[in-house]
């Protein structure tokens, strides 16, 4: 349909465009999913490091964004995702300022904290761990309908049966959290985590791994900033 010269120019243009996109990646880093870090890297491929722009656009995930993103990533009710003593909301109340939020009405605090405090990473951990435990419990109750840990099989003594469902679950976890697949190394690290958990505490190793693999991924720095 097109003359050959145009086909060549078209091919060259596509290649040039792809190259330009790759070079543009750092500038687009701030426009990715709030809980995501790098742009998609396929499993098995080498990790594609981004080049940090001279003027950093990195921002800390604030409480409201954290709550919404986490609830969406794990398909949980944001109101019940993390409650201290089973009734006091973590994100909107207990840890709001530690998570980088402000409390204008309750505490006359009209600006976001300039920097994280000593309780910030701990509060972040509590929120993520609570949500991950919920997700693991729900998924384990019916793995066929699970949101993350779908079709995982357990042996009679409560161990995970090693099959493709594990890889699929980890892919799903990374896709929901960061809009990308895990690298081979990341997958292996999380599978090794299961072995470590099993050797330390065989009882309940499967559910503990489900909760803690989710926690290890979602409490990483990649979740803290966008």
């Amino acid at each position: 349909m097109f003359p050959k010269i145009f086909q060549r120019w078209l091919t060259f243009g596509i290649c040039f465009g792809l190259l330009a996109c790759l070079q543009q990646a750092p500038k687009n880093a701030s426009s990715k999913s709030p809980l995501s870090g790098a742009e998609g890297t396929k499993a098995g491929a080498g990790v594609l490091a981004l080049q940090e722009p001279e003027v950093s656009t990195l921002k800390r995930v604030r409480p409201r964004l954290l709550g919404k993103s986490l609830a969406k990533a794990l398909n949980l009710n944001p109101q019940g995702m993390c409650l201290e003593l089973g009734k006091i909301p973590c994100i909107d109340l207990v840890h709001k300022v530690a998570l980088g939020g402000m409390n204008a009405y309750g505490n006359s605090q009209y600006q976001f904290p300039q920097s994280p405090g000593i309780t910030s990473p701990i509060a972040f951990d509590r929120v993520i761990l609570s949500a991950c435990i919920q997700r693991a419990q729900i998924d384990l109750s019916n793995t066929a309908e699970a949101f993350i840990y779908k079709d995982l099989k357990l042996s009679i003594d409560g161990r995970l049966v090693k099959d493709a469902a594990i890889d699929a679950a980890l892919d799903r976890l990374y896709q929901k959290a960061f809009l990308r697949d895990p690298s081979v190394q990341e997958r292996e690290a999380l599978k090794d985590l299961y072995e470590d958990i099993y050797h330390t505490e065989p009882n309940g190793a499967a559910i503990n791994w489900m909760a803690l693999s989710c926690y290890a991924v979602l409490s990483s720095v990649e979740s803290v900033f966008y």
């Binding site: 750092p26 790098a38 190394q185 990341e186 990483s220 720095v221 990649e222 900033f225």
Partner: peptide, 13 residues
């Protein structure tokens, strides 16, 4: 020690 150092995000930032 394994997930974060491995991620493209940490290698960049």
């Amino acid at each position: 020690t394994r997930l974060e150092p491995e991620s493209a995000f940490m290698q960049s930032y």
